[in-house]
Simulated scan of single mutants.
Amino acid sequence: MRFERKVILESSVVLEKREQAAKVAKDLQSQLERVVFGQQDVIQSLLVALIAGGHVLLEGVPGLAKTLLVKSLGKVLDCRFSRIQFTPDLMPSDITGISLFDSNKNEFVFRQGPLFADLVLADEINRTPAKTQAALLEAMQEHQVSVDGTSYALSSTFTVVATQNPVESEGTYPLPEAQLDRFLLKLNLNYPNEEDERTMLTAMNGLGQSSWHPENQVEKVAGPADLANFRELAQATKVDQAVLDYILALVRNSRELPQVELGASPRSAIMLLNAAKALSLLRGRDYVSPDEVQSLVLPTLRHRLMLSPEAEIEGITEDDCLEMLVKKTAIPR
Rank of each mutant, 00 (worst) to 15 (best):
V145G: 09
E256L: 13
N229T: 15
L257E: 07
I247R: 03
F158G: 04
V239E: 00
Q164K: 03
R267G: 10
G208C: 01
M204A: 13
P174V: 08
V251Y: 00
G206K: 01
S169T: 14
P224Y: 03
N216E: 11
A178Y: 04
A264V: 07
Y173F: 11
S169R: 13
L233H: 06
E215M: 09
N216Q: 12
T157W: 01
V221Y: 02
V239M: 07
E215L: 02
N253D: 10
G208D: 11
T157F: 01
L187I: 11
L180W: 06
L250D: 07
N253T: 14
L184E: 04
D245E: 12
S268R: 03
T163I: 03
A153Y: 05
P192Q: 04
Q209R: 15
I270W: 02
D226R: 11
Q144C: 08
T237Y: 02
N205H: 13
Q144M: 12
Q144T: 09
S254N: 02
P224Q: 00
V251T: 00
D148Y: 05
T237C: 09
V160N: 08
L207E: 10
T172W: 00
T163H: 00
E142F: 09
N253R: 12
F183S: 02
E219Q: 15
N193R: 05
H213T: 15
A222W: 07
N205M: 15
E194N: 13
E219H: 15
V218Q: 09
A236H: 13
V218L: 01
Y246F: 09
L201Q: 11
D181Y: 05
Y191Q: 10
P224S: 13
E256H: 10
Q164R: 04
S155E: 10
S211T: 03
A178R: 00
V160K: 01
P224D: 11
R198D: 14
E194D: 12
N205L: 14
L175C: 05
L185W: 00
T202A: 14
T150F: 12
S265M: 05
L257H: 01
V167K: 04
V161D: 02
G149E: 07
S254G: 06
M204G: 11
M271C: 14
A203W: 00
